[in-house]
Computed example of a mutant assay.
Amino acid sequence: MSSLIALGTGGAATVATMYLYVGVKGKNKISVAPDHVPYWAFGIGLLAANAGTAFQQVTGIGTQLSDSFKGNAALGDWQTGATAAVLTIAVFGLKPRAWKDALCGAIAPNLFAAAGGLWLLPTSIISGLISAFIK
Rank of each mutant, 00 (worst) to 15 (best):
M1W: 09
M1L: 13
S2P: 10
I5V: 15
A6I: 08
A6R: 15
G10V: 01
G10P: 02
G11N: 06
V15W: 13
V15R: 15
A16H: 10
A16T: 09
T17K: 11
M18C: 10
L20W: 01
Y21S: 12
V24A: 08
K25S: 03
G26Y: 13
N28P: 00
S31I: 14
V32C: 06
P34H: 04
H36D: 14
H36Q: 15
V37T: 10
P38D: 02
W40M: 15
I44H: 09
G45R: 09
L46F: 01
A49Q: 14
A49G: 06
T53C: 00
A54W: 10
Q57G: 13
Q57R: 11
T59V: 15
Q64V: 10
S66I: 05
S68R: 15
N72Q: 13
G76Q: 11
D77W: 01
D77L: 13
W78A: 07
T80G: 00
A84K: 02
A85L: 13
V91A: 06
V91P: 02
F92R: 00
L94S: 08
W99C: 06
W99Q: 14
L103A: 12
C104Q: 11
I107E: 05
A108P: 12
A108G: 12
F112H: 05
A113M: 13
A114G: 11
A114R: 05
A115R: 12
G116R: 05
G116C: 03
W119G: 10
L121Y: 07
L121E: 05
L121Q: 09
P122M: 02
A132P: 00
K135W: 10
K135T: 10
